[in-house]
Design a protein around this nucleic acid. Structure first.
Length: 775
DNA sequence: TGAGGCTTGGTTTTT
DNA sequence: CCAAGCCTCA
């Protein structure tokens, strides 16, 4: 081991803990990296110091991240330090590392290196067909239920055989599920395809089944580093274990460095197991732990709020983020009357910050659920503020893109019948479901693939028109396959588009959205050209791999000059000068679905924590008093997490407890220590929030909301609380006039009156807040 | 084969 | 309320 002098530029500007994280040498190292503590910098410097100190060759480094973006960032930073010496390093995501290994080793276990990667949509399509075939829906099995269960099992490394060994054969539903699981596994194998979860799980199975193969990679990767370790699921954990295990010939496993922050674990619902990090020291005996607590991102005010919130999670290693940049501004809180009112606040503050010189791309708005974008978008558009929404429908998930990719997949992997089915009648060429079934049956009886069956269309006794169409399609595939042998991907795609007329057909329709679809396809063509340019040696398979594993078409370009809107989940790993966290309400944050689950509220708290710690300088938290959801307007309660921010750190523009505009007034109830809010929709009571002046109840005295948008929702929010209504009652509504109650549904605060109005028709009203009177 | 009506379900989702 | 998917009918 080479001693690094303290003048080493690699250690410049590092604090003692960071330095230790770079310099420590041993079999296992856990870097507990709080938000904004410079972990990427530490990780890349650690790599650089291994190379510079001649402790490792580049090819012995394996650095694993979860996202392409994180991998790209790490590679870029490593290149800045090491230049060409980074060549040969594996710096990539879990999934692409596994694909790389699987492509090399696929022939060991019944796949070819041309295998397809099924995304979750492909999986569902397949499962849907299996459910239909086995009539499993009559057993209460749904596509999403089965897909979710299969995914969970794979993440736990349970394959069909081990599942069947423990299955309860007396439970017909379980037997049915097993049948589908088996069919699904067979179909993937027959199609020479892996789903996302397989990529990890099959690599683990490969290593376990072929120790000499595993040894090869163990000997290659002497230094394994894993980022965001708190988000690893069991399969990923096992993969890391397998990679760093001792070889059969006694060669010790490589050194393992993991970086993570259990306070930022927000993917438990996807199988991430927080114990992987919290029990790291138990798993890897002699592991060394370094804690990075100094934060280089946020003001002390923001960090104090974050610390205070997260400290409410028990069962965590205590750590306190701190900074030496000073307190900065107070957090600003706002309570809107409605989601639109809240959005108006966000927009107003963004305009003000922009007027003070902050760029739009330095600001971001976070929310818990995608459906919250609607109100925000409306106000952003109306205010002409530039914005973009991250996440949402991904480019490669669009139907038109998947159609076109179906051709490329068919060419690259002829065994993939799912892809063949997709393109069979796309664009329309008269090959209907009956023909498809006929072809599939023919393929099954003759033990050939669907692709091969297309060549025998003549012997199927189909009409001349259909046979001709199949022959033409088959010819096109052959032709394009030949082209793909040597030619660039763009040429293959161009030929397909020409022969099928796909884009022209889209342009010819009257649906205005088809123009956008045509543009998307042309965008894809541009992507292939770009790929060809960047990868002169790249094959069609390489292209498809990249496409499958790149999520959103790299949405991040920070120079765009727009405000970014995204979910709290998407926000992880990002940072902005100003951050708005919206919808900080019970039922939303924590979300109603997770509030009852074990560990749910704690994970939601971490989500809030992640949101808070994204902010560098300014943090805004906002909520609405009423929120429309599923067509109904519900009373919303401030989130329990709001109370966990110390009073003195928030300046309320309009506080939840008292929104009547008296300057300087702050709800004592809101920030009072120990006054735990435990009410909810079902409780029928307002809980601890209203103790000063009745919480939401006092709102009738409020001044009119400042935005005209608020008028869209009734601004006379009142509390009819215990107003008793029964079917047959006559009522009067402020907007709809008089009517008769037909029935009452729901309970407590959620009681809904179904009213037939004399002139306004039938309406459903939330009794608690509707502006109604019993006549 | 496509349009339109009906049902259903509606957290989050790095790959 | 509202989007996606399914079914039905011309």
């Amino acid at each position: 081991m080479t001693e690094l002098s303290s003048a080493d530029p690699l250690l410049n500007g590092l604090n003692p803990q960071q330095r230790e994280a770079v310099e420590y040498r041993g079999p296992a190292l856990l870097i507990v990296a709080g938000a904004g503590s410079g972990k990427t910098s530490v990780l890349t410097r650690r790599i650089a110091s291994l190379i510079r100190g001649r402790e490792a060759w580049p090819s012995q480094i394996l650095a694993i991240t979860f996202t392409n973006k994180a991998a790209a960032e790490m590679r870029e930073r490593a290149e800045q330090m090491l230049g060409a010496a980074t060549e040969g390093m594996w710096i990539s995501t879990f999934h692409s590392s596994c694909v790389r290994i699987l492509r090399r080793e696929a022939e060991n276990f019944g796949f070819t290196k041309a295998f397809t990667i099924y995304d979750s949509h492909d999986s569902r399509t397949l499962i849907k067909r299996l459910i239909k075939e086995t009539e499993a829906d009559t057993y209460g099995l749904s596509v999403s239920g089965v897909a979710g269960k299969i995914s969970r099992l794979k993440n736990e490394l349970t394959d069909v055989d081990s599942y069947s060994r423990n299955a309860n054969v007396n439970d017909p539903t379980e037997v049915k599920f097993l049948e589908i699981f088996r069919g699904y596994t067979r179909a993937l194998q027959a199609a020479n395809a892996f789903d996302f979860d397989d990529l990890i799980a099959q690599t683990v199975f490969l290593f376990r089944a072929f120790p000499h193969v595993a040894d090869h990679y163990r000997k290659q990767f002497r230094h394994v580093m894993v980022d965001e370790y708190q988000d690893t699921n069991h399969a990923q954990y096992a993969l890391i274990h397998e990679l760093t295990r001792e070889c059969a010939d006694g060669t010790p496993g490589g050194s393992l460095t993991v970086v993570g922050d259990s306070d930022q674990s927000i993917y438990a619902f996807r199988g991430a197991d927080i114990r992987n990090i919290s029990e790291f020291e138990r798993d890897f005996k002699g592991a060394h732990v370094v804690m990075l607590e100094q934060n280089y991102r946020s003001t002390q005010t923001i960090l104090s709020a974050a610390n205070s919130v997260i400290s409410n999670n028990f069962d965590r290693k205590d750590k306190k983020l701190w900074t030496d940049v000073g307190d900065g501004d107070l957090i600003v809180g706002f309570t809107g009357y409605s989601a639109h009112d809240e959005a108006q606040f966000v927009v107003d503050e963004i305009s003000a910050l922009h007027a003070q010189g902050m760029g739009y791309n330095e600001m971001a708005v976070f929310y818990r659920t995608n459906s919250q974008t609607r109100a925000l978008e409306e106000i952003f558009i109306r205010s002409a503020l530039p914005y973009r929404i991250l996440g949402g429908t991904k480019f490669y998930e669009r139907a038109e893109i998947k159609d076109v990719l179906g051709y490329l997949v068919t060419i690259a992997n002829p065994a993939d019948s799912l892809a063949v089915r997709r393109i069979l009648n796309t664009p329309k060429r008269g090959i209907g479901p009956a023909t498809e079934t006929g072809l599939q049956n023919y393929a099954d009886t003759n033990q050939i693939t669907l692709r091969e069956a297309l060549r025998s269309a003549d012997s199927l006794g189909l009409g001349p028109k259909v046979s001709g169409a199949i022959a033409k399609l088959s010819g096109l595939i052959d032709e394009a396959t030949a082209l793909a042998e040597s030619g660039p991907v763009a040429d293959v795609l161009t030929r397909i588009l020409e022969e099928t007329g796909y884009v022209d057909l889209l342009r010819a329709t009257r649906d205005p959205q088809d123009e956008a679809r045509a543009e998307n396809v042309e965008e894809l063509l541009a992507v292939t050209k770009e790929f060809d340019k960047n990868n002169p040696e790249g094959t069609l398979i390489d292209f498809l791999t990249e496409v499958s594993l790149v999520a959103a078409a790299d949405e991040l370009d920070d120079a765009s000059g727009t405000v970014s809107l995204m979910t709290l989940h998407t926000a992880k790993g990002l940072e902005y000068n100003a951050v708005f966290i919206t919808g900080v309400e019970e039922e939303l944050l924590p979300h109603r679905m997770s509030a009852g689950e074990p560990g749910g509220p704690a994970e939601e708290r971490r989500l809030f924590y992640v949101g808070i710690t994204r902010a560098r300088k300014r943090l805004f938290v906002s909520l609405a008093m009423s929120r429309a959801q599923f067509g109904q307007t519900n009373v919303a309660m401030p989130s329990r997490y709001l109370q966990e921010i110390p009073t003195e750190l928030i300046e309320w523009r309009q506080s939840p407890g008292m929104a009547n505009g008296r300057d300087g007034y702050q709800s004592r109830a809101l920030n009072a220590r120990g006054s735990r809010y435990d009410g909810g929709f079902g409780s029928g009571e307002l809980g601890g929030w209203g103790s000063t002046e009745g919480g939401w109840n006092s709102l009738e005295a409020s001044p009119k909301p400042k935005t005209e948008w608020a008028n869209r929702v009734t601004n006379k929010i009142r509390d009819n609380g215990d107003l008793e209504l029964v079917a047959g009652d006559r009522i009067s509504h402020a907007d709809f006039g008089e009517g008769t109650v037909n029935q009452i549904t729901g309970e407590g605060a959620k009681r809904v009156a179904h009213v037939k109005f004399d002139s306004a028709g039938a309406k459903k009203l939330l009794i608690k807040i509707a502006p109604i009177e019993k006549l």
